[in-house]
Write a protein that binds this DNA or RNA. Structure first.
Ligand code: NAD
Ligand code: NAD
Lengths: 222, 222
DNA sequence: TATTATATGTTCTTTTTTTCACAACATTGG
DNA sequence: CCAATGTTGTGAAAAAAAGAACATATAATA
């Protein structure tokens, strides 16, 4: 089966929407409601579910609890994913402080920095010297790393992480990282996101319409 | 002409790669070099340029300086874009501290927060009470706003921004914001990015290959 | 238990995006 | 000045993604 990035992103969105709907008291849901909540078509919802072997009942729609369980299983939420962060500056600190990862079965278990001022082995989430990162990753069998160091240090940190066994990297440094084929590197480039927003906002300002953009052109969910 | 989000993102990437190549001493470039640098095919580069009316010379490739100028013009870099940030917490502070926006003609001119502790009208980038945001946006004709407040406050802040004339919003709150058709809302959901990285990393771990994923499935540039 | 209304699952189309292939043409070197 | 070389620009083809339509199963109802 072929998997496609947009599809996986939608699964995550479905899951988030379902949590919200559940908290509102819903117990079951139909493809068109969910589609509305997420901003796609009902067919797309059913196709996505079908693709991943999730099925509802022909008249009763989908049980929200079942759906959430299924999505969590597909998205690997049946276990807690341990993550390390390299570079405890502005972005790194923001991530360490953020409380919203827990409920997604994500746990940042340590930070690493070159600057002794940032280091604090006794913190709620400990921050260790960067030199200890490789060993730590190995010993704790960490598979996911976040890179929040300046761009000039990013590739080296990535290499170390990969060397130690990391298979997925979320990179905030504004540059393309290189790695072997069997490591996933996801770049979040905030400058680019802002640039992009500006571009489309200008397009709207100039033309007065969003209609000139293709459907997928809308930067996001509007 | 139809414009497409991915295409615009690629334009930004080309531009970034070109700056790097220029700093390495390159003066002209061929579509295949640039393609390599960005991680797309040479045809794609030429198609994109062609689409936006950028042309090179049949044997000499493209002049990097011309290309950068063209891309900057297309991306609206001929003027400085003023941006305000609502919510000067972890993320908001990171953005205010970041020095990398300037060289992209983006200038964060003010922050706004509900918490008096965060306010500081005398800072390099001043932080004002949130109540003053609407007026400030109007008076300074700000078109772009960043939302970095907790999710429960996000929609209200968005409404105020839009009310005051903002046409593009970069939203960090993990929720879908609603707005009129002629306002662009770009959601950056960091939890989702991490989830996604984890999903694809797991796929790699389980199957040993990325080959099962379609081209666009690779979360990013690898 | 039969009927009916209704939402799913899936096939078939349409649209969008990417890649292929090559003619056109600029540069370089004789 | 001409041929050889090599890169662009683009129409045509292929691939991928999204959407429409509908046959089919099933919950509700009588
Ligand atoms: N802050 C933003 O808003 C923003 C926006 C866009 C991109 N980024 C990018 O995100 C990354 C992090 O940004 P930031 O604002 O948090 O930077 P920062 O300067 O605040 O923090 C960087 C941290 O990395 C540490 N560091 C430096 N070299 C290191 C090394 N070799 N090993 C380990 N740690 C090292 C530093 O001590 C510092 O604590 C940068 O690449 C930046 O370009 C940040
Ligand atoms: N920090 C992260 O790593 C992270 C990760 C994923 C998502 N997010 C999201 O990004 C947003 C910001 O995150 P953060 O970590 O910076 O949060 P934070 O709590 O550190 O900061 C929020 C700021 O907004 C201010 N605020 C609250 N209500 C306000 C209002 N009505 N008007 C103006 N200001 C108001 C607060 O005073 C605070 O300074 C949140 O929605 C969060 O869910 C953050």
């Amino acid at each position: 089966m072929k998997t496609n990035k947009n599809c996986v992103i939608r699964l995550s969105r479905y899951k988030n929407a379902l949590y919200r709907l559940k908290s509102l008291g819903f117990v079951k849901i139909f493809s068109d409601n969910l589609a509305d909540a997420v901003g796609v078509t009902a067919t797309q919802v059913r196709k996505d579910f079908s693709q991943f072997g999730i099925s509802g009942t022909r008249k009763g729609g989908y049980q929200i609890d079942d759906l959430i369980n299924n999505l969590n299983r597909l998205l690997g939420k049946d276990e807690i994913h341990k993550v390390v962060v390299a570079g405890i500056g502005n972005i790194g600190t923001a991530l360490l402080n953020y409380k919203g990862f827990e409920k997604e079965s994500i746990k940042i278990i340590a930070g690493f920095d070159i600057n002794t001022v940032k280091q604090n082995a006794a913190g709620e989430i400990p921050v260790f010297p960067i030199a200890e990162m490789e060993n730590f990753i190995r010993q704790n069998q960490i598979k996911i790393g976040v890179i929040a160091v300046p761009d000039f240090a990013a590739q080296q940190i990535a290499d170390t992480m990969i060397q130690a066994g990391v298979k997925g990297i979320l990179n905030f440094a504004p540059m393309r990282l290189h790695g072997p084929e069997n490591v996933v590197i996801n770049n979040v480039n905030l400058v680019l996101e802002l640039e992009n927003t500006i571009y489309f906002a200008n397009a709207v300002i100039k033309t007065g319409v969003v209609g000139q953009l293709t459907a997928s052109a809308q930067p996001d969910g509007v």
